[in-house]
């Protein structure tokens, strides 16, 4: 067993996910403490360009695993590849992103390797014994806990996207090492037949940097239009969310639900419009960097977590805010 730290870089359809760089940043800090080196594992098909994008963020080696079987993500194929490579190289720590893909993949990898997995971490450090300590929110974000993997190796953790900073790019210093695994189409039993995109290239809520959410106060599906307009004023990386009561009332589709039974998000900016802020909703967005609340009720609990609060009618404020944001955007 080495002291090495590995991160699994995430890509979809030839595009690197930002969380990969965040992982390199924290991975580098951990590797300095363990005295090992930092490796990045990149899986896919015809993705050599992405290996170059990872270069210069502190990894001494980028392991590039190219196979036609790994072109599209599959739990089975990716698990096999990662497990085989971890067994061959024996890193002491293996990190991934707590993304939709990561939540599917890493529990499976951990079980195969007979080790533990700290999921959805918001901070990682190495203690005096050289063991990885992962900080995780529990009980819907009401409490925090530290978890360690005392014996089993590698120590695995999934890190929430958007929590850790993207490190500065230094001069290129990573060597790209091509690695192969014995993998064939027979290793993937659930085949992907077709990928159908939803209209308008919507980005996933968990990956949005700005989310504008509407609650019961929005009052109808048609009214959600003003929420959508504010979101699109922020441009690329913005998305529309909704509270559970808005989804249950049919104002917004279920995949937009933020909260304990919906999606847990942490964008740079979360604007809650007509959302009172139940515990279950807060559980899904309280780690957002900036929270704005627009609500008629001055007693609404959402104001307790908001950085900026406006007690007013959202139908008056939101369209005006959309105009202001557009104006500032236009100024550049």
């Amino acid at each position: 067993m080495s002291n090495d730290v590995w991160i699994v870089a995430e890509q979809r359809e030839g595009k690197l996910k930002k969380v990969s760089l965040e992982l390199l940043g924290i991975g580098k800090r951990l590797a300095e403490k363990t005295g090992g080196s930092l490796g990045a594992l990149l899986l896919g098909h015809e993705i050599e360009g992405l290996a170059a994008e990872l270069d210069g963020y502190g990894a001494s080696k980028i392991f590039l695993c190219d196979s036609e079987v790994l072109k599209d993500y599959s739990s089975e194929g990716y698990t096999k590849a990662i497990v085989d490579l971890v067994k061959a190289h024996q890193p002491s720590i293996l990190l991934g992103g707590a993304t939709a893909l990561g939540k599917d993949l890493f529990p499976r990898v951990a079980a195969r390797l007979g080790t533990g997995l700290a999921s959805d971490c918001v901070g990682l450090e190495i203690n005096d014994q050289g063991v990885l300590v992962a900080q995780r929110p529990i009980f819907a974000g009401k409490a925090m806990v530290d978890t360690v993997t005392p014996e089993a190796r590698p120590q695995m953790a999934c890190v929430r996207p958007n929590v850790l900073p993207v490190p500065e790019k230094s001069s290129g210093s990573s060597t790209i090492e091509k690695v192969t695994v014995e993998i064939g189409p027979q290793d993937v039993r659930a085949k992907i037949k077709e990928i159908v995109r939803t209209a308008g290239e919507k980005i996933d809520l968990t990956e949005a940097s700005v989310i504008v959410s509407g609650g019961r106060g929005v009052a109808s599906q048609e009214n959600f239009k003003i929420i959508e307009e504010l979101a699109s004023a922020f441009g690329e990386g913005s998305a529309v969310g909704a509270s559970r009561s808005a989804v249950d009332a049919g104002f917004a589709p279920h995949d937009q639900q933020v909260g304990q039974t919906g999606k847990v998000v942490n964008p740079n900016l979360y604007i809650a419009c007509g959302i009172s802020g139940s515990i279950q909703h807060l559980a899904g967005m309280r780690t957002s960097k900036y929270i704005v609340a627009i609500n008629k009720d001055p007693e609404a609990p959402i104001f307790q977590v908001a950085d900026y609060g406006i007690v007013d009618d959202l139908f008056k404020v939101v369209p005006l805010l959309t105009e202001e944001v557009k104006k500032l955007k236009a100024q550049g």
Binding site: A110, G116, K142, M144, D146, T147, V148
Partner: peptide
């Protein structure tokens, strides 16, 4: 395989 400790707010 995981041990938890140091519960806090």
């Amino acid at each position: 395989k995981l041990k938890t400790k140091n519960y806090r707010l």
